[in-house]
Computed example of a mutant assay.
Amino acid sequence: MDKLKLRAEIEAVRASLPENERHSASVRTRESLLDRPWVQMAGLVACYWSTGTEPETHGLVFALWKHGATVILPVLRDDNDLDWAVYDGPDTLAPGRFGIMEPVDTRRGVDAIRTAALVIVPALAVDRSTGVRLGRGGGSYDRALARVGPNVPTVALLHEGELREGVPAEPHDLPVRYAALPSGIVRVVAGRS
């Protein structure tokens, strides 16, 4: 299956999920993540502010921040690369490009992700065998993941059924170490980080 077809299939399934089920699933994913010692000990966490039918991160970002982590969120640049800024509570966000909420704090630069102890990224699917994630096609997160150290846990948030075999990949597609689903956290076999 090619990327466009798989994206369309997953988007359709996500859109068919009732909002209360998506929210309940996101809560289970968040609680499972927050139970992990490597999440609890991460002082600087790169995450994202979810939109639409993505697994919801608003509660996760808030919980990480309330537990003392410094959370940086992406700011989409004109070249589709990701700059980063510190989240300092729900009142410190404003709509950015495409209406996605972004921190209003000082931009830290594209290399700010290099200092993160934990990186949480969006995905439409993750390959169970290779850890390669399927994104939305802009390449922003592949560029960001290329800057992450080899020992930093990288986690893609997914709905059930989105961890699968045979996710199409190109040379620039980078793997993640973990897939976080409502049913639990799965370490993928060949994840890079």
Rank of each mutant, 00 (worst) to 15 (best):
residue 121 V to F: 04
residue 99 G to W: 04
residue 86 V to S: 13
residue 119 V to E: 02
residue 111 D to W: 11
residue 127 D to G: 07
residue 107 R to C: 12
residue 100 I to Q: 12
residue 104 V to D: 02
residue 80 N to K: 13
residue 117 A to P: 03
residue 119 V to C: 04
residue 123 A to N: 06
residue 96 G to L: 12
residue 108 R to G: 14
residue 126 V to S: 10
residue 116 A to T: 01
residue 123 A to V: 05
residue 76 L to A: 14
residue 81 D to M: 09
residue 117 A to Q: 15
residue 100 I to M: 12
residue 112 A to K: 01
residue 125 A to Q: 07
residue 126 V to H: 09
residue 99 G to L: 06
residue 122 P to M: 06
residue 119 V to R: 00
residue 98 F to W: 15
residue 79 D to F: 02
residue 76 L to H: 05
residue 93 L to P: 03
residue 99 G to V: 02
residue 76 L to T: 14
residue 108 R to M: 15
residue 87 Y to A: 04
residue 120 I to E: 06
residue 79 D to K: 03
residue 82 L to S: 04
residue 73 L to A: 07
residue 126 V to C: 09
residue 85 A to E: 10
residue 78 D to V: 12
residue 120 I to M: 03
residue 85 A to P: 07
residue 118 L to Y: 01
residue 116 A to I: 00
residue 120 I to P: 02
residue 106 T to G: 06
residue 113 I to R: 05
residue 98 F to K: 07
residue 103 P to K: 02
residue 74 P to W: 02
residue 82 L to H: 09
residue 81 D to H: 13
residue 84 W to R: 04
residue 95 P to D: 10
residue 107 R to W: 11
residue 116 A to D: 01
residue 91 D to S: 13
residue 77 R to Y: 01
residue 84 W to S: 00
residue 102 E to D: 08
residue 89 G to V: 02
residue 108 R to N: 08
residue 125 A to R: 05
residue 114 R to H: 12
residue 93 L to R: 03
residue 122 P to L: 08
residue 95 P to C: 04
residue 91 D to L: 13
residue 77 R to H: 06
residue 75 V to A: 10
residue 118 L to R: 00
residue 115 T to N: 13
residue 115 T to W: 15
residue 108 R to A: 10
residue 74 P to A: 03
residue 92 T to V: 05
residue 102 E to L: 05
residue 76 L to S: 12
residue 76 L to M: 13
residue 94 A to E: 14
residue 101 M to A: 15
residue 114 R to A: 15
residue 98 F to Q: 08
residue 99 G to D: 05
residue 86 V to F: 12
residue 122 P to D: 13
residue 122 P to T: 06
residue 97 R to G: 08
residue 116 A to E: 01
residue 96 G to M: 10
residue 100 I to K: 06
residue 102 E to T: 03
residue 112 A to G: 00
residue 79 D to Y: 03
residue 108 R to D: 11
residue 89 G to N: 00
residue 118 L to C: 01
residue 101 M to P: 09
